[in-house]
Design a protein around this nucleic acid. Structure first.
Ligand SMILES: [Mn+2]
Ligand SMILES: [Mn+2]
Ligand SMILES: [Zn+2]
Ligand SMILES: [Zn+2]
Lengths: 142, 142
DNA sequence: TATTACTTTATAATAGTTCTAAACTAAATG
DNA sequence: CATTTAGTTTAGAACTATTATAAAGTAATA
């Protein structure tokens, strides 16, 4: 639940100018109680339907990628034709509901720590992500 | 290391006609000692460069998806713009080398069993996949 | 205020993938 | 074996998510 002036500083501190478009996107993404997952398309739709402002799709892409690069968003890839972004930037894992196409955060009550016994020689681990695909009992359960 | 007549039965048993194109793709994918990972593009290139036969890209897509549906291939999604297929259809996890863009299989010596304590109510787990991204020490380590 | 660097925008380009429909071929039928 | 049927391959078009372009606009700076 941040407010406008805080977004201005946040952007300035990141070397990003606080433009009208970026502030609107900040508001939509970060001015909430809970984190959430979205696609670029979700975000574009949200802005065009719920606000009078129009932000070009290119700007939405640019801004989301800029926010990702600055570490304010994480990208989660589920299927090759859809990319999700996550306002929860802490290390966490996901359930993916194949019936609803929704991502659901896991916490440590749900998935224990992943035990990596051996890493590739000469390489550093940049991330560890678990994806648990779920579907209703009556569906195709590949 | 299967041979042609075995591929013919395998395809027939799956309800797929053993066409020249499918048998060639079987040979390229399954007539080897070790499993491996590939993209559609890798496969198309492999066939066009190493064999005299020409298989249309549409057929390669069709066949790879048919093989996936029959459970002879697994699909692994790393990034939204590239989809990998895996001839190793056992449950296993992956390292992804961000420097080389290569997928590397993990076995139980490398990643312990993932402990899922609570699943979503009313849903069945269809898969559990761990992806460990690695990069060389000197790279950007997000 | 004037200058500069960055940003937004519409639109074009790109690339992976899927669709289409005609030609082709394996399997089934008689 | 000849015919019929259903499944398959193919080139190319279409589709869709994403990125590139370059001109107009805006924030920061001098
Ligand atoms: Mn795509
Ligand atoms: Mn794409
Ligand atoms: Zn999340
Ligand atoms: Zn693998």
């Amino acid at each position: 639940m941040l407010k406008n002036s805080e977004f201005v500083s946040k952007l300035r501190n990141s070397g990003l100018r606080p433009t009208k478009q970026r502030l609107k996107i900040c508001e939509v993404l970060f001015n909430r109680d809970k984190t959430f997952h979205f696609t670029i398309n979700d975000l574009a739709k949200n802005i065009s339907e719920n606000f009078n402002e129009k932000i070009s799709l290119a700007t939405i892409y640019n801004t989301v990628h800029a926010f990702k690069d600055k570490g304010y968003l994480k990208e989660i890839t589920i299927s090759s034709d859809k990319s999700y972004f996550d306002t929860n930037i802490t290390k966490h894992h996901h359930f993916y509901d194949e019936d609803t196409n929704l991502l659901i955060d896991c916490n440590d009550n749900e998935i224990g720590k992943v035990n990596i016994k051996n890493n590739i020689t000469g390489k550093k681990i940049s991330s560890v992500e678990v994806l648990v695909r779920v579907a209703s009992d009556t569906q195709n359960q590949d």
